[in-house]
């Protein structure tokens, strides 16, 4: 499955502040099994682009196509979202949270349970199937959210700063686990991040965006095959790309990016920004 955005534009209307052009002239194709990261300063429209790709937001101009058919709304069977705030329903058990998409599709209960347990097993959380979200740590909750997306067996995962709310250690460990998982599954991924390291470490291709109005300023291919070991961070390729990104994003007039002015390995932990 390939997803294509052509000449995409999104304008937000507000009576008080007038129109804001969040996205303009965006052309992007994500091919089957490709891992694409979106990076750029805050306000550059990377989340808007992700939401529009997944049909959660209707574009003001242009359109999104999946295998030649125009996207008119979210279709979790094709492209499933993973949000930064996890968005687990607090009144449902973990297993029911994982099965939520199947529930909405009115699948029989036995099928939902079996599928959800299988996915929980995949992310290593089968033992907390009967627990409730508030009993789990942030990292565990995000793994539940990954399992929930995988339960739909989508070909594409749309991740909106999935590790943004986690502490550095959890983030690295979870990143490694999920990276292997996603690579083995062969699913395509579009991931929004504001961490340079994350953007490079995960990606087949990095899309760099710039704000006001949000548009793509650069695409960078990462040649080292996935999944990558943690020592990829110490490689020459990683260093070069990081330098390039750093230069591009810290050019005059552009807002700073998280981690851009700090040494590798000391990415600050952003607060829960919901």
């Amino acid at each position: 499955m390939a997803i294509t955005a052509s000449d995409l534009g999104v304008t937000y209307h507000s009576q008080r502040r007038g129109d804001t052009v969040a996205l303009q002239n965006v052309d992007l194709t994500v091919s089957e099994g490709e891992f694409v990261t979106l990076i750029g300063p805050s306000g550059c429209g990377k989340s808007t682009l992700l939401h529009t790709l997944g049909g959660l937001l209707a574009p003001t101009s242009g359109h999104v196509e999946v295998d030649g058919r125009t996207v008119t709304g979210p279709d979790p069977w094709k492209a499933a979202f993973i949000f930064q705030d996890y968005s687990l329903l607090p009144w449902k058990s973990i297993v029911d949270n994982v099965a939520i998409g199947l529930r909405f599709a009115n699948r029989p209960k036995a099928e939902r349970q079996a599928k959800a347990l299988e996915m929980l097993d995949l992310v290593g959380l089968a033992n907390v199937a009967k627990a409730y979200p508030h009993e789990l740590s942030g990292g565990m909750q995000q793994r539940v959210a990954v399992a929930r997306a995988m339960a739909m067996e989508p070909e594409l995962l749309l991740m909106d700063e999935p590790f943004g709310a986690l502490d550095e250690q959890t983030r690295q460990r979870l990143g490694q686990q999920m990276g292997e998982l996603l690579t083995r599954s062969g699913k395509g991924v579009v991931m929004v991040t504001h961490s340079l390291d994350e953007a490079i470490f995960w990606a087949d291709r990095i899309i760099v965006m710039s704000p006001r109005p949000g548009h793509i300023i650069r695409e960078i291919h990462v040649e080292t095959p996935r999944p990558r070991e943690l020592d990829f961070i110490a490689s020459a390729e990683f260093g070069e790309i990081r330098q390039e990104l750093f230069r591009m994003i810290s050019e005059p007039g552009s807002a700073p990016v998280e981690g851009a002015t700090r040494p590798i390995g000391s990415i600050p932990v952003p607060g829960r920004t919901r």
Partner: peptide, 8 residues
Amino acid sequence: RLGSAYGA
């Protein structure tokens, strides 16, 4: 948002 993203 979760509801619409997961096809409710």
